[in-house]
Design a protein around this nucleic acid. Structure first.
Lengths: 179, 179
DNA sequence: GATATGTATGAACCTCGTTGCATATGGGCC
DNA sequence: GGCCCATATGCAACGAGGTTCATACATATC
């Protein structure tokens, strides 16, 4: 019941087709809530049945027809209801942490950690570029823009934390085993 | 296929019943891979069929009978196979970040953020107490103990990051809206 | 002519995890 | 006596999400 709200939030910003949403979820919102197009179509159909969104068919030439979804008053009400209740703590499920605890293959762990560090650094660079481009003056932000920036800040802090963890692991492993 | 390995790792440390494992998952390993007892029983049955674990029935008086599971050589081989292959990046799914982006209800958001900060602080205190008690001299650690400590370090860094994020949010929200 | 890429929607199937329920015994609390 | 809690094991139903596949047309590349 959580992809529902991510889609509704996206639709408040602009009406969109399933295809459009899938592309949006490859960036922006998708950083915090990844979703495949199949999943999105499924949820859109369910939400239409519930009356939270409505669709209009648009014919296009040269391209397949398009179903554009817009949020309804009932959908807005649902968003309000959702926004008012507290978020439950999301449980972290880290395959990597379990692998650390297992400590079966120091070489593989080392290679894995280096790869993860690189992935974090890459993602961090994207986030920081976004911040510089879209939020040059954070103190001036208000409303949804402020929220988006704060969400992005969470991403930035998360990636930095990931890098710091990897560095601790690398220091510990390189300082001991293979030298 | 990931709870499987978390259970196997736990069984390499000591043989255990489903009930024992469920309690272990309420602490230690469960910090990085939460699991309910129903799920654990289900996976144990599947792994026994696959030959990764074997069980012996123990009769107890005053208490229900107990099925103690131990890892088999095939299970050990599976752990090795798993340890050798790289971990895929775990996608973060944050309801809270989506709610931030939505920015529907500043009051609720503020209350939510304060509650989250408190939860992070509480968890951090637990982790730091564990670190002080079990790993007073990290530089001396080796093997699985080193791995466990590094996993715990990840938890500590994660909680600190969570607190830092909440503080940024609180500063931004309190500096603007209700003052 | 064959093959990939982009636009556009969706069904079918499978796995994982959650929720609720069932069962059995012993002990402590009100 | 009734109720909850701890020990101990599980089943059944459901929901969310992932994977694979199907369909349709247009454009670009080999």
């Amino acid at each position: 019941m959580a992809l529902d709200h991510a889609i509704l939030v996206s639709l408040t910003e602009r009406a969109a087709s399933g295809y459009d949403l899938a592309r949006r979820f490859d960036a922006s919102i998708g950083y915090f809530w990844p979703a495949s197009h199949q999943q999105i179509y499924k949820v859109l159909a369910r939400m239409q049945e519930a009356g939270w969104v409505e669709s209009t068919l648009q014919e296009q030439d040269g391209r397949p027809d398009k179903k554009t979804y817009a949020i309804t008053p009932a959908g807005e009400a649902e968003l309000d209801r959702w926004a008012a209740q507290p978020t439950e703590r999301e449980a972290l499920r880290s395959d990597f942490a379990v692998k650390l605890r297992a400590f079966r293959d120091a070489e593989a762990l080392l290679a894995d950690t280096r790869a993860r560090r690189a992935a974090h650094a890459e993602r961090l660079a994207e986030y920081e570029a976004s911040e510089a481009r879209f939020y040059p003056d954070p103190s001036a932000l208000e409303g949804p823009d402020l929220g988006s920036w704060l969400a992005l800040r969470g991403g930035i802090l998360g990636e930095r934390q990931g890098i710091a963890w990897c560095d601790e692991i690398l220091t510990a492993l390189e300082g001991r085993g293979s030298r």
